[in-house]
């Protein structure tokens, strides 16, 4: 096995939600922290796609921001091709950051509305100095526009003249303009309509094949994940609960939360299932449950689950954070009783 392009170990990020010191002094409140990312380990091989899935508040987008330097980790390491990124700001060091780019969720907010498209796409090349000559830069912009399925003339237009899908193409053109090796894609299709989503997903697969890109794909949509990923990591309240090859997640999900997610995806082929079960909701991340975060919703929870945090241990070809799986209780158990 080759060395992975990206290696993340023990990554943590907590946000301080405490009142200011003086207010705390008077109200007697304790300091409050949200552990948005609470010890995450994964690595991504060159040319492959790892998807992080989870519901809102599970910390998947924070992982993306940490990798890109948009926020700083509280603890842990992020090594990109041997370069340590923890403690480095966005865009720094330039020769490494040039090789990592990001595609954002909201195609309406990710392009500066006052800039022409050509200027938007050229910004990374200008900033990182990959194409110092303006006329060459312009030529490259035209090439990129055509590469992502737009026309060179579109460079003169403003973002509001494009549809959501076309804007996401512009975003992609900007992201690949510095010839990166690694793309972080934060829910790139969740704001798009289905028929357009397919276009963008196909384009991203094509880019991966042609340019040999490595993706970290972040989404809440398991069906999208199925199409795009080689490996899948399932996150719950800041922790990875299962990490496995894509086929395995779908064929043999281990963690009870992964199973719950798979079961609840609305499916166009399975009409009128009865799904009204007491499966609960994601708890408040400020006060996560003790032990395993998933225990209040888990049909397999025991006293051990309620007190002891499970470790992230290898299980077959995957890794799982679950006492029940590690104790061998998960296989036979019926996940949840029907009403």
């Amino acid at each position: 096995m080759s060395t992975p392009l990206l290696n993340v170990t023990g990554l943590k990020k907590s946000f301080d939600l405490s009142q200011p010191f003086l207010n705390r002094l008077f109200s007697g409140d304790e300091r409050k922290f949200v552990h948005a990312v609470d010890g995450v380990d994964f690595s991504i091989e060159r040319g492959t796609t790892l998807s992080l899935v989870g519901e809102s508040g599970c910390g998947k987008s924070t992982v993306a921001k940490l990798l890109m330097g948009l926020t700083h980790p509280s603890d842990g390491n992020m090594r990109f091709d041997g370069n340590e990124l923890a403690g480095m700001s966005a865009g720094d060091p330039p020769d490494v950051r040039r090789r990592m780019q990001m595609i954002f969720q909201d195609p309406f907010a990710s392009l500066n509305p006052r800039w022409r498209v050509a200027r938007i796409i050229a910004e990374p090349m200008k900033s990182f100095g990959t194409h110092p000559d303006p006329s060459e830069r312009r030529k490259e912009v035209d090439r990129l526009l055509e590469f992502v399925g737009l026309s060179a003339a579109d460079g003169e237009k403003f973002p509001h003249e494009f549809s959501g899908g076309q804007r996401q193409r512009i975003s992609i053109a900007r992201a690949i303009s510095t010839k990166p090796e690694f793309l972080v894609c934060d829910e790139p299709t969740s704001a798009l309509d289905v028929s357009v989503q397919a276009q963008i997903l196909n384009l991203m697969r094509e880019l991966q094949r042609e340019l040999g890109l490595t993706y970290l794909f972040i989404t809440h949509d398991l069906a999208v994940v199925n199409y795009i990923s080689d490996y899948i990591g399932v996150m719950y309240l800041g922790r990875l609960v299962e990490l496995a090859p894509a086929e395995q997640i779908f064929a043999a999900p281990q963690h009870p939360y992964t199973r719950l997610l798979l079961e609840t995806v609305p499916d166009i082929t399975m009409a009128h299932r009865d799904m009204e079960r007491p499966a609960g909701e994601v708890p408040n991340p400020i006060t996560p449950p003790m032990g395993c975060h998933f225990n209040p919703r888990c049909p397999l929870a025991t006293d051990r689950c309620r007190t002891e945090k499970p470790e992230f241990l290898p299980y077959g070809s995957s890794r799982v954070r679950c006492h029940a799986v590690q104790e061998g209780r998960a296989d036979q158990a019926v996940l949840r009783e029907d009403l």
């Binding site: 865009g91 910004e123 975003s171």
Partner: peptide, 26 residues
Amino acid sequence: RKEYVQAARINGVSGMGIMMHHILPN
């Protein structure tokens, strides 16, 4: 907080550059 500002930060645009070229016109 908007994503186009984050995109600029990722691409190593300085704080001054972001203020003048990205935020000010908006």
